[in-house]
Structures are given as C-alpha cells and as structure tokens.
Design a protein around this nucleic acid. Structure first.
Lengths: 166, 166
DNA sequence: TAAATAGGTCAGTATTACTGACCTTGTCAA
DNA sequence: TTGACAAGGTCAGTAATACTGACCTATTTA
C-alpha cells in the first residue's frame, strides 16, 4: 500500500491517527444523540427511555433479561424506565409462552409511533451521511465499528443487527 | 445466482440499513467507554473527568470557553470537573497572554500520565479495529463519522482533529 | 422437593447535567 | 473615563441515569 504521507515518525503518526478516531466517535455520538434528546423533553422522557423503546421495537417479544444484556445496565436501572413506559402505555408485557416467568416486551401502536418519531431524526442523520459518502465508505464504517466491539460481543451483535434480531 | 432476499421493498431495506448504523454506533460507544470508566473508579473520577483531561491534553492552552464548545455542556457542569482536576493537580491554569480574563488550560506531568493511562485502552481498541479492517475501511469510517456531525460543526472538527488542535 | 432462574423492589448513594441568578475581573470603544 | 460586554466562576435547586446490596415472588427444572 502506497502512503501519500510517508511516516517520518511512525509512532507519532500512529498515535495521532488513533486519537482522531477517538475524537470522531466522541463528536459523532455527541451530535447523534442531541436532536432526539431535545425531542424527548416534550414527552418528559430521557435518553434511556428512547434506548429501551428502540430495542424493544427492534426485537419484539424479547425478555427483560435480553434487553439488559443489550443495554448493559442493571435491572434496577431499567426497571424505572420500563415502569414509565408501561404506565404511559408505550410498551406492554406478555408472559413467555414456554416459561411463564419471562415478561416479553412489545411496543404498543402508541409506542411504535413515538419510537419512529424519535428514531427518525437519527435515521435521517445516517441517511445524509451515507448519501454523502457512498457505499464503500459505509462498508468501512461498519467494519471498523464492529472491530471496536468487545471480541466476545462481536458475533452476537453482528447477527443481531443483520437480521433485525428475529 | 439469484438473490436470496430480493429487495421487494427498497424503503424497508433502507430503513434496515440505517438502523444497523444506529445500533453499531450505540454498541461501539458502549464498549469504547467501558474500560476507561472502570479505570477511572480507581481514581474516584468519572467519565467527564476523562473527557476534560483528554481535550485539555489535546489542545494545550485552550480557554475554558473553547473546552465548553467541544464538550457542549454548561460551564456549571464543567466547573465541578475542572475544580477536581485543579485540586488534584492534574490540570493547571495560566491567564491568557493577551486577554487576562482567559484561563488557559494545561495538563501537569501528573495529568499527562493519567490521561495517557486512561486513553491507552481506547487507543488500543482503535488500533485493533484498524489493524483488523485496513486503511480503506478506516477512511470510510472517518468519512461517515464526519458526515454524522452537525453540518455547522464539520469544518471545525475536521480541522481540529487533523492538526491536533494547534 | 430443593435449587436455580426471571423478574421486581426497597433503600441509599454517586455522577452528570440542567436552569437561573448573580458576581468579579478585565477589555474596549464611545 | 465610563459603560457595555465578555470570560469565567459560583450559589442554589433540580433531574436523569446509574450503581450496590439485600431481599422478595413466581416458576422451572434437576
């Protein structure tokens, strides 16, 4: 591979390159979350509510335990969020068909509507970025982000995002 | 070879693709922050302290206002963090050469050491991802993340990450 | 029947962040 | 030289997210 900028000091350049990645993901995540956070205020909900709505919509019928393994928070943390969403009828629970201890989570039509409204802003942001950069860049983006995951997570996440979780 | 899943509904596929992006950035950010968050506990500091240390190290001599514009938080939020870092002598202030109202921020040697320790885990994660995916993917990753920024931010961030802020 | 699992709950705490009001110090232009 | 404005700090109050640890019920399973 031919380098356009010959690395006079490879260690320095390498560190520089890695720091650019660190900063890019910080800046992108900062802007990525901003708009839907604003929107959430109208509903007196927070980012945690959006995350729960998103992943319940994405994986309908999943158990509370599965949601916890995605969000990587404690059940005490999710319980407040889930309580709000159940009370306001954005989400409903059905007991598991085989194991009745499970509470399988679903969005209500009302929850689907809110989820779409919140996620739309983020989708549009991605649509713009994808449009501006092209399919090849998108493929690189996907590969690098998968590479940033904990190795133990990678296969699972890859599968989860590819088939929409079903 | 016939497509196994012909795109009967292009809009659906598009939405699917965008949601994959949304999920990837969520999962990547989740894992990206996890290790240094753990490390921070040993010092009784939080993620906000790392962010401040990081960007002060990255842009030595920047003003408090500049740091605020990077982090996009209020000065009341940064003040607690900065107070901790000043008290524990990770950071020092010098008044601006021209405008003496400014407090220009610098890491102390102690602060540089801590910053490196915290950031190293994240750098290593990026190094692994870059190594596994190659230069082309990295370029795509960079382009897409820049594309995700607010348009008003893009030029500034691009410049900032390219020259290390100086 | 006993252990393990899914899930919920109570109590207490920490961190990050917000709004709004107000203050000091210093710059700069009329 | 005075007055507006800017950089930054601070006080008070509030909210959201998340944590640990302990304990509970219902249900499944060995």
């Amino acid at each position: 591979m031919i380098e356009t900028r010959p690395p006079a000091n490879p260690l320095f350049l390498r560190d520089e390159e890695l720091r650019q990645g660190i900063e890019l993901i910080f800046y992108a995540y900062r802007d990525f979350t901003f708009e839907s956070d604003q929107q959430l205020k109208h509903y007196k909900l927070g980012r945690a509510h959006h995350r729960a709505l998103y992943f319940i919509g994405r994986h309908p019928g999943q158990t509370v335990g599965h949601l916890l393994s995605i969000l990587k928070v404690t059940k005490q943390s999710i319980s407040r969020v889930l309580k709000d969403l159940l009370e306001q009828e954005y989400v409903e629970q059905k007991s598991g068909p085989r194991d009745r201890r499970e509470r399988r989570l679903h969005l209500t039509p009302r929850g689907e509507k809110l989820e779409r409204e919140l996620t739309d802003r983020q989708s549009q942001r991605f649509a713009r970025a994808y449009r501006e950069t092209g399919a090849e860049s998108v493929e690189g983006f996907r590969k690098v982000l998968l590479g940033l995951l904990d190795p133990a997570e990678r296969a699972e996440v890859d599968k989860r995002i590819r088939n929409g979780g079903r």
